Simulated assay, not measured.
Amino acid sequence: MDQVMTRKPHEMLAATLSQELDAVNTLIRTRMASKHAPRIPEVTAHLVEAGGKRLRPMLTLAAARLCGYEGDHHLKLAATVEFIHTATLLHDDVVDESGQRRGRPTANLLWDNKSSVLVGDYLFARSFQLMVETGSLRVLDILANASATIAEGEVLQMTAASNLKTDEDVYLQVVRGKTAALFSAATEVGGVIAGASEAQVKALFDYGDALGIAFQIADDLLDYQGDSKATGKNVGDDFRERKLTLPVIKAVAQATDEERAFWTRTIEKGKQQDGDLEQALALMAKYQTLEATRQDALGWAAKARAALEVLPDHEIRTMLSDLADYVVSRLN
């Protein structure tokens, strides 16, 4: 009993959906194969088998189950969502020149940038093959739009990340692109394939959208006040990489001329020196932007929970509600 009580919400979901997750994993391994290019399954397996939580495909399976679905198309959609996610990770690591992900060397480091980009392209193509097999134009529309939004969000982030004119609205647009779009598509297609009512499908979209935003805001906040052993990142990595995230955006909005000059030098121009991170943290403390960011994350988690209220009373609904709490519990 104690072991059950200490399980995290995503672990509870994984246990409840274990048979379907096993089927999705089998489908992923089958569809990432290539007769002519063995590099493709090598690179894909490096990421897919890296021990991620499979949170996005799990959301699709959970949404379909919650809405009473009894077919098997949700398995293809869950695999689709994971392929899209993996493709974006491969591309992101090239764009960000990353050397490590989930504690392991990135594919672009082990192979090369060309392999990462081209295998990412292959996975996008595979994902469209899978979603077409469901025979649902609406599902295709949702996932195609999500894929476009993700790409658009990455380009927007590239241009906005070090621009002090980036405000909270632009930040939210970036977050919706890079994170929330796939969360909301994952939950929405689960409802659509199950034939749920329009109100329920909208609720699932709203849940995924709010969950994704809460997740990303929490991640950005933990960069400045998290435990590096728990997060796998050093405190201040975003600052060193000149990424304008919500805590800094809030500080810039209230900055004096002298403080703005500091942000211009460190973020826009990238001329950082010893003591700058400490100064940045001091300015965030001055304007209490870390706490304000935390409250924003909690607010989005509350919106996610509220969205579930129109959905059937079910153990999975409770787990999804707990999941919204869990993504921000790291901030306590």
Rank of each mutant, 00 (worst) to 15 (best):
V132R: 11
D93T: 07
Y122W: 13
A45D: 12
K250I: 04
P247T: 08
K286C: 08
A292T: 11
L21W: 06
A148Y: 10
C67A: 11
G68W: 08
A78N: 00
E291W: 05
P9D: 03
L156A: 14
N332V: 13
A37I: 14
L137Q: 14
V4H: 13
T16N: 11
L222D: 09
D2S: 12
L59E: 02
K202A: 14
G232M: 03
S127N: 01
A160H: 09
F128H: 11
D227L: 06
A194N: 01
Y122A: 13
D93L: 07
G212V: 00
V48C: 08
N234Q: 15
E315T: 15
R56T: 05
K303C: 09
R7L: 15
L90Q: 00
L55A: 07
K243L: 06
E168Y: 05
D276R: 06
P247R: 07
R7D: 14
A301V: 06
Y207R: 02
H74C: 02
I28T: 04
V155T: 13
A181N: 06
F128G: 03
K202T: 13
R39D: 08
K202L: 12
N113L: 01
A301M: 03
M319C: 10
I142C: 03
D2M: 10
L244H: 00
A253N: 10
E152N: 11
H314M: 00
N25D: 12
M5T: 15
Y287Q: 05
A301H: 04
T86L: 03
F239I: 08
A304S: 09
D274H: 09
K165C: 07
E42V: 07
V248E: 03
T264L: 14
A307D: 04
R242Q: 11
M12T: 12
D141P: 04
L246R: 01
S136T: 09
E11R: 01
D296H: 11
T80E: 01
N113M: 07
A78F: 05
L308T: 08
S127W: 03
G191D: 06
R104W: 01
N234G: 12
Q225Y: 09
I316D: 00
E259H: 08
A161H: 13
M131N: 09
R101M: 04
H10V: 14
L308Y: 05
E258L: 11
R260S: 10
I150M: 11
E241K: 13
A180F: 00
K286T: 11
M284D: 03
L21E: 00
T264Y: 12
K286I: 04
V235C: 03
N25M: 12
K286G: 05
A203E: 02
V117S: 01
G236C: 06
G52V: 08
E291Q: 14
M1H: 15
L89H: 01
G236N: 06
Q273A: 11
N234I: 12
L123T: 01
V24A: 09
S136C: 10
L283V: 07
P38I: 04
